Amino acid sequence: MAVRETIILDQPAINRALTRIAHEILERNKGTDDVALVGVVRGGDHLARCLQQRIQDIEGVEIPLGSLDITMYRDDLASRGSLPVEKTDLLFPLENKRIVLVDDVLFTGRTIRAAMDALMDIGRPRSIQLAILVDRGHRELPIRPDYIGRNVPTSVSEKIVVQFNDENNPTEVRVAKP
């Protein structure tokens, strides 16, 4: 069976979405005080870096940035076989920070649940907010993003692919339909 792919966000659309999300983060938090970005490794970490740059361009302030590997917190680890463990990189204390957790695609909510568990094992942030580039629906857990680049209703059989270039900048988002 052939797979059909459709581009749903090109690079200019991704850039607009990330700029909008950066403004929304600043508005909701009334600036940058105690705000930090933490990206989920393999997608969210690259988007968090992009958001950090946009916030710096807007406010002139470099907010803390970290990455979080949730491999060992996954609830499907036994069924997935051997997964590579990446490096968690949080060089700032989480206490009293307003953490904006960043990921590329929100589907069932299980990855975000694992990320929140990992964050709470590391420290106790004041709050955790969620920024997502693409929300595709089909939630299995009561998790809702605070910032969304684009809502894309999908069927369970479809897949959302976020493409990054060699510099880890997002270049396009595609939906793959079997």
Results as ranks from 00 to 15, higher is better:
residue 13 A to H: 02
residue 150 R to I: 01
residue 10 D to S: 15
residue 8 I to K: 01
residue 2 A to P: 11
residue 178 P to Q: 01
residue 93 P to N: 10
residue 32 T to Q: 00
residue 89 D to I: 14
residue 125 P to G: 12
residue 34 D to P: 06
residue 94 L to K: 06
residue 154 T to H: 01
residue 70 I to H: 07
residue 117 D to H: 03
residue 75 D to T: 10
residue 149 G to K: 02
residue 50 C to F: 03
residue 37 L to D: 07
residue 76 D to G: 01
residue 142 P to C: 11
residue 166 D to T: 04
residue 112 I to K: 01
residue 22 A to C: 12
residue 177 K to Q: 15
residue 150 R to G: 03
residue 60 G to Q: 11
residue 104 D to P: 10
residue 136 R to S: 02
residue 100 V to Q: 09
residue 47 L to W: 00
residue 169 N to F: 03
residue 129 Q to G: 13
residue 107 F to E: 00
residue 113 R to C: 03
residue 19 T to Y: 11
residue 145 P to N: 04
residue 66 G to N: 12
residue 18 L to G: 07
residue 78 A to I: 12
residue 139 R to P: 07
residue 142 P to Y: 12
residue 140 E to I: 05
residue 90 L to K: 09
residue 72 M to F: 12
residue 81 G to C: 08
residue 129 Q to M: 14
residue 46 H to L: 06
residue 67 S to K: 14
residue 119 L to K: 11
residue 80 R to D: 07
residue 40 V to K: 05
residue 111 T to Q: 14
residue 59 E to A: 11
residue 135 D to S: 02
residue 49 R to K: 09
residue 121 D to L: 14
residue 168 N to K: 05
residue 26 L to P: 00
residue 146 D to G: 03
residue 98 R to K: 15
residue 136 R to L: 06
residue 87 K to F: 08
residue 114 A to R: 11
residue 94 L to E: 07
residue 130 L to F: 04
residue 42 R to M: 00
residue 7 I to V: 15
residue 117 D to I: 10
residue 13 A to C: 04
residue 32 T to E: 02
residue 67 S to F: 09
residue 109 G to H: 11
residue 117 D to N: 15
residue 155 S to F: 05
residue 153 P to I: 06
residue 135 D to R: 03
residue 100 V to W: 03
residue 21 I to L: 15
